[in-house]
Simulated assay, not measured.
Amino acid sequence: MALRTDVSKKMQQRAMYRRTRRNRKLRYRPARWLNRASMRKEGRLAPSLKSKLDSHLREKKQVEAILPISHWKVETASFDIHKITNPTVTGAGYQQGAQLGYYNVKAYVLQRDNYKCQSGRKTKHSAKLHVHHKVFRSQGGTDAPSNLITLCETCHNDLHAGKFELKVKRSKTKHATEIGIVKVQLKQCWDFEETFGYVTKFKREQVLGLPKTHYYDAVSICCENGELVQQAKHVLRKRHVASGDYQQTKGVRSEKWIPVGKLFGLKKHDFVQTPQGTGFVKGKRSSGYFALETILGNKVHACANIKKNTVRISARTTTLTQPMEAARILVTKVPSILAVN
């Protein structure tokens, strides 16, 4: 399962389009962001985090739709945020953070930056110094020292005026923090038995004698002592696609029209069986010769004739599935328990 990382960018793009509509010579549309209940409700999650949480719950719902799940076992992980930022920290060092001995965060940031502007610009800097948020608090930034930088008053004003851009390094603890938040939310809305990595490693290495892979970890999670495993002949592959076809043309100058909707009774991503092969419809042609592919994107046939002896096995959905041969293993004695790693 691959989690989306473009939600924040999509939200910013949608806000830009919304502001553009308000500035057009159309009916006046007042700003309404402050009166939206979703921004004031208790326990609200940022859209990027909510997307990750919903992805986990969607996977759970889909598995329960195809398998008789009676019990869930989930391996959770915890991260030492302090250890990530300072690998040498030990013992009492956890109580002695970077701001130890400073009056407040601002004093620490000024001292850390040697009371000098950190913009890197070759210009005349003013004597007055400001502490600037690299990522604004309105955009999810925090008051942590890693998100603060020292700028002189001239550079600070020019930055907000858009005269130059500040290079922002990605936080080392962003993903670890997000995993911790999603884990807490999952425990509140999902009833599962929690297990940990060291338990999985012991059962995989010492009991089952299996190498390190994600699917072997999943088998180790749901296996109990003394249970046997056997190699599976097939594995169900899955792929998410858009609900509709949004690209209407292609080419350097968009001079070629792409057939949209049904053509010869078939849509893109329909799973069909033809004399030339079985696969998902990748490209449609008005001549009736379609391109077919597997769920992994591998070519089945470039010009399969779908006008004769063609059977549609399944219609297009947003979640495509296809059983494929693979060297996988399954639990033999626990068919109603699924482990998630």
Rank of each mutant, 00 (worst) to 15 (best):
A37S: 11
S38T: 14
K41M: 14
K41V: 13
G43F: 08
R44W: 10
R44P: 13
P47I: 02
S48M: 14
S48G: 15
L49P: 08
L49I: 15
S51C: 10
S51R: 06
K52R: 15
L53R: 03
L53A: 06
D54T: 02
S55Q: 10
L57I: 05
E59F: 13
Q62S: 09
Q62P: 12
V63W: 08
V63F: 10
V63H: 09
A65T: 10
A65V: 06
I66S: 03
I66A: 04
I66H: 11
P68G: 01
P68W: 00
P68C: 00
P68E: 03
I69A: 05
H71F: 12
H71C: 08
W72Q: 02
K73E: 14
T76Y: 14
T76C: 06
A77Q: 13
A77D: 10
F79H: 15
I81S: 08
I84H: 11
N86H: 14
P87C: 14
P87D: 09
P87T: 04
V89E: 01
T90Q: 14
G91Y: 12
G93T: 12
Y94W: 12
Y94P: 03
Q95V: 06
Q96V: 13
Q96K: 13
Q96L: 06
Q96F: 09
G97W: 00
A98S: 10
Q99M: 10
Q99E: 11
Y102I: 01
Y102R: 03
Y103T: 05
V105A: 10
V105T: 04
K106M: 11
K106G: 06
K106P: 00
Y108Q: 03
L110G: 06
L110C: 05
Y115I: 03
K116M: 10
K116V: 12
K116N: 09
S119P: 08
R121F: 09
K122Q: 14
T123D: 10
K124P: 07
S126H: 12
A127W: 08
A127H: 15
H130P: 07
H130R: 11
V131M: 08
V131K: 09
H132C: 01
K134I: 05
K134Q: 05
F136M: 13
R137Y: 08
R137W: 09
R137E: 10
S138M: 00
S138V: 09
S138A: 15
S138L: 14
D143C: 00
S146D: 14
I149S: 01
I149Q: 05
C152P: 09
E153H: 12
T154M: 11
C155S: 04
C155R: 06
C155N: 04
H156L: 07
N157Q: 13
D158C: 11
D158R: 15
L159M: 14
L159G: 00
L159E: 01
H160F: 05
A161K: 15
F164N: 04
L166T: 00
L166A: 01
